[in-house]
Amino acid sequence: MSSTHQRLTLNAAAYLILATILWGGNAIVGRWFVGHLSPALLNLFRWIIAAAVLMPFAWKILLPQSLLWQHKKRFLTLSLLGVGCYNAFLYIALETSSPINVTLIGASMPIWMLLIGSIFYQNRVNPWQMLGAVVSIIGVTVVLSRGNLDGILMLKFVPGDMLMVAATLLWACYSWMLSKPGKSPEKQWPWTEFLLAQIVLGLIWSLVFAGFEFSLGLSQIDLSPSLSWPLLIFCGLGPALIAYRCWSAGVAIAGPNIAGFFGNLIPLFTALFAAALLGDMPHLFHAAAFGLIVAGIVISSQLKTPSKKGSTNLRPKN
């Protein structure tokens, strides 16, 4: 078996950290929308905003002669996993769960990345990656327990948490698909076209989910111009457009396994954002957790192995 070529560079780290910062904020904002906008509609609206921003720069990818349509099955799958299911599941989970619980479950991302890569992509898992996963998850536990391990016993899990488990698994599959374009020419496309292709096809899935939500009588819209619309625009530009671009670029450089470890920064940023909104300044345990999570990332990036002959990585153009 072979291992995916992995290089943790400063550029890759910057891309992945920015994505996790935005997704940390997304958990807080998504929870705020509970009672104001139903989950499927929230997911649909944010992708409409992202598509509207990208359209002037990447509309050619949607032309009938575009190579996109020759690989529509791949992009329908990518858009289902990354645009449709993951975010819809996350927002539904936040209906009954808390941002901290949701991001705690997301901390299992490195494990799912390693398992998916090993089972479906013949990626060799080395001891450094397993050790890095353990160290990084300990850092997440420090955040959630606020430096007191007894605090972790106070966390309560609800049915929405299981939906987040499914979302995390699907995101791991999506990330591995990003790094394995196969015969698809997407690695030669500008990143705007690559992302718009996913979003436009993802809108199909988002519409299906929104229609299903409406048929069950669960749709809800109660938006205020002063706060709801600015937060919705943030969801469309930050966690959707910018974060997806950064994650794609980071995965292209570092590989899915290492990128998965950066997901453990999301609970830290979520906790910091929640603390900031409550007027609570960061504490020493936040610094300790950050150190452990970063240590896990560094450890997991050790023991590089060459990539399989002829394999390619997705490298979106800047």
Results as ranks from 00 to 15, higher is better:
residue 162 M to K: 11
residue 57 F to D: 03
residue 302 Q to W: 11
residue 30 G to T: 03
residue 95 E to D: 11
residue 273 F to I: 15
residue 153 L to P: 10
residue 294 V to C: 12
residue 229 W to S: 01
residue 264 N to G: 01
residue 112 W to M: 13
residue 295 A to G: 11
residue 208 V to N: 01
residue 95 E to Q: 13
residue 177 M to D: 04
residue 56 P to F: 02
residue 292 L to I: 03
residue 233 I to Q: 04
residue 43 N to Y: 09
residue 121 Y to H: 09
residue 56 P to N: 04
residue 35 G to M: 00
residue 284 L to E: 13
residue 187 K to L: 15
residue 177 M to V: 07
residue 54 L to A: 09
residue 292 L to A: 06
residue 5 H to T: 11
residue 215 S to Y: 14
residue 229 W to P: 00
residue 313 N to A: 14
residue 1 M to I: 12
residue 205 W to E: 01
residue 183 K to M: 11
residue 32 W to H: 09
residue 259 A to Q: 10
residue 274 A to H: 12
residue 312 T to L: 15
residue 18 L to M: 12
residue 179 S to V: 12
residue 110 P to F: 03
residue 97 S to Q: 08
residue 200 V to S: 05
residue 232 L to R: 01
residue 70 Q to L: 07
residue 215 S to N: 12
residue 35 G to K: 00
residue 283 H to Q: 15
residue 262 F to I: 05
residue 179 S to P: 06
residue 56 P to H: 04
residue 269 F to D: 02
residue 115 L to H: 08
residue 146 R to Y: 10
residue 295 A to M: 06
residue 234 F to E: 07
residue 102 V to G: 05
residue 142 V to Q: 04
residue 105 I to L: 14
residue 316 P to W: 04
residue 83 V to Y: 00
residue 184 S to R: 05
residue 67 L to W: 12
residue 197 A to R: 03
residue 2 S to M: 11
residue 310 G to H: 00
residue 80 L to M: 14
residue 125 V to G: 02
residue 203 L to R: 09
residue 124 R to K: 11
residue 252 A to M: 11
residue 172 A to G: 11
residue 238 G to L: 12
residue 56 P to G: 06
residue 45 F to V: 04
residue 268 L to I: 10
residue 179 S to W: 09
residue 147 G to E: 13
residue 35 G to P: 00
residue 267 P to T: 05
residue 192 T to W: 08
residue 295 A to R: 00
residue 7 R to V: 15
residue 197 A to S: 08
residue 247 W to I: 11
residue 111 I to F: 15
residue 227 L to S: 09
residue 151 G to R: 07
residue 24 G to D: 08
residue 156 K to N: 13
residue 279 G to V: 00
residue 14 A to Q: 05
residue 174 Y to L: 01
residue 97 S to H: 06
residue 101 N to I: 06
residue 46 R to T: 04
residue 216 L to G: 05
residue 15 Y to A: 03
residue 264 N to C: 01
residue 52 A to W: 06
residue 159 P to K: 10
residue 72 K to W: 14
residue 192 T to C: 09
residue 12 A to S: 14
residue 128 W to S: 11
residue 194 F to V: 05
residue 83 V to L: 05
residue 37 L to S: 01
residue 273 F to P: 03
residue 105 I to W: 08
residue 11 N to V: 11
residue 297 I to W: 08
residue 300 S to W: 00
residue 86 Y to M: 14
residue 265 L to E: 06
residue 242 I to N: 08
residue 314 L to W: 08
residue 278 L to W: 07
residue 317 K to L: 15
residue 135 V to L: 12
residue 6 Q to P: 03
residue 230 P to G: 05
residue 279 G to Y: 01
residue 114 L to K: 02
residue 184 S to Y: 07
residue 307 S to W: 14
residue 285 F to G: 07
residue 181 P to T: 09
residue 19 A to I: 00
residue 165 V to R: 05
residue 131 L to M: 13
residue 148 N to W: 13
residue 40 A to K: 05
residue 119 I to H: 05
residue 179 S to C: 13
residue 214 F to K: 12
residue 17 I to G: 03
residue 77 T to D: 01
